[in-house]
Write a protein that binds this DNA or RNA. Structure first.
Length: 272
DNA sequence: AGCCAGGTCAATT
DNA sequence: AATTGACATGGC
C-alpha cells in the first residue's frame, strides 16, 4: 500500500469521465480498475489517495497512468476567466486526469464506443475481455481478465465478435486486429510519432477509425494533449457556447483537457 | 415505445 | 466539398 496526497485528483471524476471503461466503484471511497494486464484497488478521502500496490508498481505504472507528476492546477489557471461556461466546467471537473492508457486497448475501446452509450460500452468491453482476455489473479486474490491483444482478436471471426453484442463494430475490430498483426500498421511506430497530426493520420488508416475515434486514441493513449475529440455532446456545446469556434489559439497544446472538462460537465451537471 | 448513444463509410448531389 | 443513409444493439 502506498499513500499519496494529491491535488486536483478525483477517482470519482476520473471514473465517470468516460476515458477508462474498466474502472468501477466498489465502495464509498474505493474503486478497482484493470488497465492492460494490471489490476488496482485504490481509495480516496479528500486529497489522500491509497494505492493498493508496491512502490515500484506505483512509480513504474500508475504514476504515468494517472499522470500524477503533472500539475493540473496550472491547466485550470489557463482557463479564460471571462469564459463562464468553461470556468464552471473546469471547476466542476477539477479532479479529472488525462490518463495514459494502452494504445491497442484504446483503439478497440473507441471502436466500440461509436454510436453507443457508456453503460453499454462497459458491458461490451467486459464481455470481450472475459471471452478473449487472459484470466489473472491479483496480489490479493481477485480474479480478472486482461485485455486481449491484437494477435488474439485477429483470430476471432466477425461472427464470434458479433455474438458479444458489438453490432456492426465487430467487423471494424476484426479487420483492425488483422491489419496490425499483418504489420500493415505498426503500433510501435505510432507510439514513437512525435506529432499529433502524424499519429492521428496513421490511426485513421485503420478500419472504423475516423476523426473522432482517432482523437480519443491520441488523447487517452498517446497523451497528445492537443487532441480535441468532437462527439455529439461536444458538438452541441460548440453550437451553443462557441458559435465563433472554440478558442483553439488560446488553448493550443492543452485543448484535450479542456475537452474533458466540457465532456464531463455535460455528462453530469450540464444536462438540463 | 421510441429515441438516442463519445461515428464511420460510401454513395450521392 | 457537403449531405445522406446504412449500419446493430440495448439503455433509459
Amino acid at each position: 500500500m502506498v499513500t499519496m496526497e494529491l491535488d486536483n485528483f478525483s477517482l470519482e471524476q476520473i471514473c465517470d469521465s468516460g476515458q477508462c471503461f474498466r474502472m468501477k466503484k466498489t465502495g464509498e471511497n474505493t474503486y478497482s480498475l484493470v488497465a492492460g494486464n494490471q489490476y488496482l484497488e485504490v481509495s480516496q478521502k479528500g486529497s489522500i489517495v491509497d494505492f493498493n500496490c508496491s512502490d515500484t508498481e506505483l512509480i513504474c505504472f500508475w504514476v504515468p497512468y494517472f499522470d500524477l507528476d503533472v500539475d493540473y492546477g496550472a491547466y485550470i489557471e489557463k482557463v479564460n476567466s471571462r469564459d463562464q461556461y468553461l470556468s464552471k466546467a473546469a471547476a466542476h471537473g477539477s479532479g479529472i486526469r488525462i490518463l495514459q492508457q494502452d494504445l491497442w486497448e484504446m483503439i478497440v475501446t473507441f471502436l466500440i464506443s461509436q454510436q453507443n452509450n457508456i453503460s453499454r460500452i462497459r458491458g461490451c468491453i467486459e464481455r470481450l475481455c472475459a471471452r478473449y482476455g487472459e484470466k489473472r489473479i491479483s496480489g490479493n486474490g481477485v480474479e480478472y481478465y486482461g485485455f486481449p491483444g491484437p494477435e488474439i482478436l485477429a483470430e476471432a471471426t466477425e461472427q464470434e465478435l458479433r455474438e458479444l453484442g458489438l453490432g456492426y463494430r465487430a467487423r471494424y475490430i476484426a479487420e483492425t486486429a488483422r491489419t496490425i498483426v499483418k504489420g500493415e500498421i505498426s503500433l510501435e511506430k505510432i507510439y514513437r510519432m512525435r506529432y499529433y497530426n502524424r499519429a492521428k493520420n496513421e490511426l485513421m488508416k485503420l478500419c472504423g477509425v475516423g476523426e473522432k475515434v482517432a482523437d480519443c486514441i491520441c488523447l487517452f493513449a498517446l497523451h497528445h494533449m492537443d487532441a480535441f475529440p468532437v462527439d455529439t455532446h461536444i458538438r452541441q456545446v460548440l453550437d451553443e457556447h462557441y458559435k465563433r469556434g472554440f478558442p483553439n489559439r488560446r488553448y493550443h497544446g492543452i485543448r484535450g483537457i479542456m475537452q474533458q472538462y466540457i465532456f464531463y460537465y455535460e455528462l453530469t451537471e450540464g444536462r438540463r
